Amino acid sequence: MTTPEQSQLGKPAPYADRYDASLLFPISRRPKREEIGLGETLPFFGADLWTAFELSWLTPRGKPQVAIAHVTVPCETPNIVESKSFKLYLNSFTNEPFAGADEVRDRIRADVSEAVWRGAPSQAGVGVRIVMPEQFDAEPIHELDGLSLDRLDIECTQYTPAPELLKAAAGEQPVTETLVSNLLKSNCLVTGQPDWGSVQVRYSGPQIDQGSLLQYLVSFRNHNEFHEQCVERIFMDLWTRCRPTKLAVYARYTRRGGLDINPFRSSHPAPAPTNVRTARQ
């Protein structure tokens, strides 16, 4: 099993100038899931939505092409791909000739699928969509929908995850709400570099105390964990402590190295959100 410490994170890494699928570095989801009490059967559905803004290759005649790639990785995969390795992998396309965007899409789909499903008895594909420059104008910017928790004037004193802060009105009439905050911040598990994000919580069930939820989200401020792991931790803390009948947690993190990662987890089958970036992304 590979570990984050074995990856290229925090280490000098030369850029490959020709296509190299071996640069992708899968990391098992299992250890961090076991840490929050998850076993083989997951209590959620969802996906990790990646956006790659630095993608380029050559035509057969040597002319550079540029594009944006949207990549969707199901949360059922046994592995994630470490983001620096993904950046190095995408940069290895830079001097490689391809017949067209479809060939690039198919190559990314095959390589990322192999990495995230590595070690599993059965495999499925990941979703890949290539956006060419003539489509750039159609790429929207939109903030997460919902009632902003950031409007609340509260005191925050805890900056490592504090699920004990969460409170819900168990004895009152259940509600359905969508709450959002732009104050999510955590740090890279290996390098400690800051990761900035926005988070949306949709739920039905006992009303969650909004002030305590905001304090809880702020408590991730000095926490070291990958994006996907943070969202699963938030989901499980809300699921076990507030006991909603339905829950969905969606975070959009600002890009680093030309990549943003946007995990979505839902207690019920639901389509993944449209991969639309926020203003900070």
Score class of each variant (00 low, 15 high):
residue 189 L to N: 02
residue 275 N to M: 05
residue 71 V to L: 14
residue 150 D to I: 12
residue 59 T to N: 03
residue 84 K to D: 04
residue 150 D to M: 11
residue 132 M to Q: 15
residue 7 S to C: 08
residue 101 A to D: 11
residue 280 R to Y: 12
residue 245 T to C: 10
residue 73 V to I: 15
residue 49 L to F: 01
residue 61 R to S: 14
residue 105 R to I: 03
residue 9 L to C: 13
residue 114 E to M: 09
residue 118 R to D: 13
residue 200 Q to Y: 02
residue 48 D to E: 09
residue 71 V to Q: 01
residue 162 A to V: 03
residue 221 R to Y: 10
residue 8 Q to R: 13
residue 266 S to W: 07
residue 225 E to N: 09
residue 63 K to R: 12
residue 259 L to Q: 06
residue 40 E to T: 10
residue 95 N to H: 13
residue 182 N to R: 13
residue 78 P to L: 06
residue 10 G to L: 02
residue 30 R to Q: 11
residue 192 G to W: 01
residue 70 H to L: 11
residue 47 A to R: 01
residue 92 S to V: 07
residue 11 K to R: 15
residue 9 L to E: 15
residue 262 N to P: 09
residue 222 N to E: 14
residue 138 A to D: 15
residue 63 K to H: 11
residue 97 P to G: 06
residue 242 C to I: 08
residue 207 Q to V: 06
residue 69 A to S: 11
residue 56 S to Y: 02
residue 251 A to S: 14
residue 84 K to I: 04
residue 236 M to Y: 01
residue 106 D to E: 15
residue 160 T to A: 10
residue 96 E to V: 04
residue 173 Q to Y: 05
residue 26 P to M: 05
residue 243 R to Y: 04
residue 96 E to D: 12
residue 80 I to R: 00
residue 175 V to A: 02
residue 80 I to C: 01
residue 124 A to K: 15
residue 133 P to F: 10
residue 170 A to S: 11
residue 242 C to W: 07
residue 215 Q to F: 04
residue 68 I to N: 03
residue 68 I to F: 11
residue 278 T to C: 14
residue 108 I to E: 04
residue 97 P to W: 09
residue 91 N to L: 11
residue 186 S to F: 00
residue 103 E to W: 08
residue 106 D to W: 05
residue 253 Y to W: 09
residue 190 V to S: 06
residue 48 D to I: 01
residue 14 P to W: 06
residue 62 G to Q: 06
residue 110 A to T: 14
residue 42 L to M: 11
residue 124 A to D: 14
residue 213 L to N: 01
residue 247 L to D: 03
residue 99 A to L: 11
residue 67 A to V: 06
residue 55 L to G: 02
residue 134 E to I: 08
residue 35 E to W: 03
residue 119 G to Q: 07
residue 281 Q to D: 14
residue 213 L to C: 01
residue 137 D to S: 15
residue 134 E to D: 15
residue 79 N to A: 07
residue 37 G to I: 03
residue 25 F to L: 04
residue 202 R to W: 06
residue 90 L to C: 08
residue 102 D to Q: 15
residue 148 S to G: 07
residue 163 P to I: 03
residue 139 E to S: 08
residue 107 R to L: 09
residue 61 R to W: 09
residue 188 C to E: 01
residue 268 H to G: 00
residue 133 P to Y: 07
residue 157 T to A: 14
residue 217 L to S: 01
residue 37 G to H: 04
residue 152 L to E: 10
residue 69 A to K: 01
residue 123 Q to K: 15
residue 259 L to A: 04
residue 63 K to M: 10
residue 153 D to Y: 13
residue 85 S to Q: 08
residue 56 S to R: 05
residue 251 A to L: 07
residue 101 A to F: 12
residue 163 P to Q: 02
residue 116 V to I: 12
residue 281 Q to L: 14
residue 91 N to E: 13
residue 195 D to Q: 06
residue 185 K to V: 11
residue 231 V to A: 08
residue 36 I to H: 00
residue 176 T to C: 09
residue 108 I to T: 08
residue 169 A to T: 01
residue 215 Q to L: 05
residue 134 E to S: 12
residue 53 F to H: 13
residue 124 A to I: 13
residue 252 R to A: 07
residue 200 Q to R: 10
residue 234 I to N: 00
residue 57 W to N: 03
residue 193 Q to Y: 05
residue 178 T to H: 02
residue 39 G to W: 04
residue 173 Q to T: 14
residue 114 E to W: 10
residue 38 L to F: 05
residue 277 R to S: 09
residue 205 G to A: 05
residue 130 I to V: 14
residue 63 K to W: 04
residue 172 E to G: 00
residue 239 W to D: 05
